[in-house]
Simulated assay, not measured.
Amino acid sequence: MANIHSTAIVDPKANLADDVSIGPYAVIGPDVTLGSGTQIGSHSVVEGHTTLGKDNRIGHFASVGGMPQDMKYRGEPTRLEIGDRNTIREFTTIHTGTAQDVGVTRIGDDNWIMAYVHIAHDCQVGNNTVFSSNAQIAGHVHVGDWAILGGMAGVHQFVRIGAHAMLGGASALVQDIPPFVIAAGDKAVPHGINVEGLRRRGFAPETIAALRNAYKLVYKSGLTLEEAKSQISALTAAETGAVADALRSWLDFLNTATRGIIR
Rank of each mutant, 00 (worst) to 15 (best):
I82L: 03
A14P: 10
V64N: 02
G66I: 04
E47K: 08
D31P: 06
G37K: 05
E47M: 13
G29R: 01
E47Q: 12
V27N: 06
P24L: 04
N56Q: 01
G37N: 06
N56A: 02
G48E: 09
R57D: 09
K54V: 06
Q39H: 13
E47S: 14
R57W: 09
D55G: 12
I82D: 02
P68K: 03
G53Q: 02
L52T: 10
G83K: 00
I22Q: 07
T51H: 12
A14T: 09
P24K: 07
V46L: 10
G29E: 05
I82K: 05
G41N: 06
P30S: 13
Y73A: 02
V20P: 00
S44M: 11
K54H: 13
G23K: 07
I28G: 01
T7D: 05
I22W: 07
V32G: 11
H43Q: 09
N15I: 05
S6W: 00
G37M: 07
F61S: 12
T78E: 11
D31K: 14
T50G: 10
H49K: 15
I40W: 07
S21N: 12
T7H: 03
S63G: 12
N3C: 06
G66S: 12
T38W: 00
N15V: 06
T51K: 15
G83H: 05
T78F: 07
F61C: 08
S36F: 00
V45Q: 10
H43W: 11
R57P: 00
Y25G: 01
F61D: 08
P12K: 11
V46K: 04
V20N: 01
D18F: 04
D55M: 08
T33L: 00
Y25P: 02
H49F: 15
R79H: 07
G41C: 08
I4S: 12
L52A: 04
S42R: 11
I40M: 09
K13N: 14
I22Y: 10
G59Q: 06
H5T: 01
V32P: 03
N56W: 00
